[in-house]
Each structure stands twice: as C-alpha cells, then as structure tokens.
Nucleic acid binder design. Structure first.
Lengths: 216, 216
DNA sequence: AAGAGATCTTACCAGCCAGTAACATGAAGC
DNA sequence: GCTTCATGTTACTGGCTGGTAAGATCTCTT
C-alpha cells in the first residue's frame, strides 16, 4: 500500500437549503441538520462566531430561528459539531497515513497534504478557533483533548521517521508544533490570498520542510 | 554591526495597579492608561476578548468601569492599543535586523528570535487575534494593513537571503507564510506547554527551518 | 376524514454588557 | 476658605441575542 493520495472531496458549492425542496425529502431530518452545520461553519468563518447570530444563520437557510432548535440543541453545540466535522476529515487522513507503508517521511507528507486540504475546507476555521470562543469549560476541555489526540498521532509519525531514518534526529515535539503551526496558519490567510490551490501550497511547504532554507 | 541579539525585555510581572499608590503620581494619566492596556492584554489572552467584560477588567485594577473611560474611549480601542503595543515590539526587532549586516539568513534568524519573544509576550495574543474579534470594518482594515507591512518586510528579508546566497532558491511568499505560521502558532500552545523558554524554542525552530527534516 | 406527530412560525423573555448621566471627592492654585 | 479641574463612584439605559412558549400548518396513517 503506497502513501495514500488526497481524496478530492467535492463539497457542494451552492449552499442550497434542503428547505427549498418542493417535495418531502427522504431522511430530511439528518439532511437539514447537516445543512445547519455546514451553513454555520461557513458563516462562522466569514463573519466570526460572535458576529453570527442564530437569526442570521436561520435567515440564510430560509427559516426562522426556532426551527434550528429542532435540529440542534444550542449555538455552542453547532460550533462543536463543526469542529467534529473538521476533525473527522483529519482523522481519516491520519488513518490512511498510518496504515500505509513506505518511509514515514513520505507518509508524513501525505498527511500534510490532507491536513492542508482540511484546514482550508469549510470546517477548517471552526477546527482552529472552536476552543477559544465563548464556550463552556466542559466543551473546551473536550475539544482540547481531541486536538491533543491529533497532535500525538502526528508526532508519532515524525518519530517513526526518525526511527526509520527518513527524518533526521530532531526535537519531535517542537517539529510537530512548527509543522502544525505553518499549516494551521493557512486558515488565516488562505481566503485572502488563494492564488494557489491547497495542494500546491502543501507541496511548497513540503519542499521547505524537507530541505530547509540553507543556501551555501 | 553584527546580527542583533534579542533584548531581554523585563516586563513587571506583578500587575501592580497605579491606583494602589498612596501618593499622587507624576504623569499618572499615561501610567494609568498603560496599566489599562496591559491588564486588558493579559485578560484578553487569558479569558478571551468577549469573555472579558469591562467591569471585570476594571475590578482587576481596583477601579470601576466608568473610570476606564477616562483613559480609553472604548473597548475596541483598548484592543487596538494592545495590538499596537505588540506591533511596535516587532517593528523594533525588524528595524534592528534590517540595519544589521551579515548574511541575510542570520538576520532573518535574529528576527525570528525577536518575533518569538513578542508572540509569547503580553501582547502577542492580541496581535494575532485582534482582527477577527468583534471589530468594526474600519479598524479591521487598519490592522490588516499594519500586519501586511510586517509580512512584506519579512519577505524582503528572505529575498535578500536568496540574493546573497545564504538562503536557497524558494517560493519566498510561501516560505514567509510557513515561517510566520509556525511562530504565530506559539501564541496558542505556549501557555499550556512552557517547558522551554521562548528563545530555546526559537532556536529549535531555526534549526528545523535551516536544515529541514530530510534524513538519509 | 379524523387524529397524531412532526415541523415551523409569531411573539416574547431575560441576561449580559458597553456606554452614559449625574453626582461626589479631593488636591492644587489663589 | 473658595474655586476649579481632574478623577471616581453609583445608578441607570438600551440594544442585542440565545433561548422558549404556545399556537398554526402540513403530512402521513388508519
């Protein structure tokens, strides 16, 4: 099994609301719930969590606020679900990369590609910012824990690389922080400066990570 | 002039409020204003901008809310001042590094050290997060502009390195983003995991930036 | 067609909090 | 002592918004 390629996840660009449908939908409940989550993720990224009122969000879906509460228990829960959606995507990439064989460095790079795609995706912003928004301590802790899991698996990938010699000796903790930081930061600037596609960016990052800056 | 060392800025750890003073202070106004800014910066970093009410902030200084308005026109303005304080620190570092001589790579690394110190400093959080908080579009634009200035100067430093051969050919824009991202991310995790001092972290980052991951 | 359950709306409440008005105090100048 | 200006305080308002109650409507089942 070679290092896995990044799946080209096609997200439906037009945020067509399930409420627009003329006929009753099969499994409408889950569909609508997902639509709420997705619309929220986009709104949060665009306007920020606090600037997005549930009235706005509902209006964007062509509904009124109380309707949202049929599908979701609270605003906080919406944010959490957005986080989970992003998390899932990253976990899947990790699963793939851990299962694959080949030098760990290559598997790390495959992960980086997937991670970059996730960060600039619809749920990327929520993943990064969920915990420092206006959330209860309980939810905050949960999120922190889940993030720590990702971090740990990423570090393990680096350690495996040091083990098999494909990555040179280094401080794996700091290296993981540096890698994660560079990638996460995409979530800030990508919207403004999208001259490159996510995977192109990932490849240039990888080149940099791989060989460093050093000239002569 | 060699690449400048990072000044060891000693910030007064105890947030002693100027209002505690028994006697009237010389230039008390500016002093108190600065105390408000600093206390706000710390509170914002600790609890977040929205979770910090002006009542809390005032109470922390041993005063009541309306008193704050003697020194500062609005909450938004406080955040902006925090941002500026952080910015100034970084700009000074940049000034130093641009003025210095020696290979540009070394000057870039000196900048990185200063930048790391600033990011984990009192105003680091505000610098990173100011723009995506609950701010008016006008202030948001101002901040974005100022940040773009930093980015530009940083990229220039990298380009100078490519010019003088101390940095290998690369996509300078992406490289700048990667560097900035890795450093900025410190603002997220440093509080939680402060086993290393900022300059130690900077040095490990620099080692990684310099030589990359590549093993055999 | 009638009941039942799901879905959605209008109308409302309650808490939070930035910002203000009006009054109190206290030190410096005369 | 009296005025003045800076500095604080208490008490309040007004807007926003997350969340809810109660009723309307729609669809499916029997």
């Amino acid at each position: 099994m070679p290092a896995p390629a990044v799946k080209n996840r096609r997200e439906p660009a037009p945020p067509q609301s399930p409420w627009q449908a003329r006929r009753r939908l099969r499994d409408g409940h889950a569909l609508k719930r997902d639509a709420v989550i997705l619309a929220a993720a986009r709104a949060f990224r665009e306007r920020g969590y606090h600037k997005t009122s549930l009235d706005d969000l509902a209006a964007g879906l062509g509904v009124t606020k109380p309707t949202l509460y049929l599908y979701v228990p609270s605003k906080e829960a919406i944010l959490f679900e957005c986080f989970r959606a992003g998390l899932r995507q990253i976990q899947e990439t990790l699963d793939d990369c851990e299962r694959a064989d080949g030098p760990a460095r290559e598997r790390l790079f495959a992960f980086i590609r997937g991670y970059a795609a996730a960060i600039v995706g619809d749920f990327g912003w929520c993943m990064l910012r969920a915990e420092d928004q206006h959330l209860g301590v309980q939810m905050s802790r949960r999120i922190k824990l889940l993030k720590a899991g990702i971090d740990k698996r990423m570090r393990a990938l680096i350690e495996a690389g040091v083990e098999d010699g494909s990555i040179r000796e280094c401080d794996t903790r700091m290296t993981a922080f540096a890698l994660a930081g560079a990638l996460n930061w995409m979530g800030h600037w990508y919207r403004e400066d999208a001259t490159l596609k996510p995977l192109e960016i990932a490849d240039r990052f990888i080149d940099f990570f791989n060989r460093g800056l050093k000239g002569h």
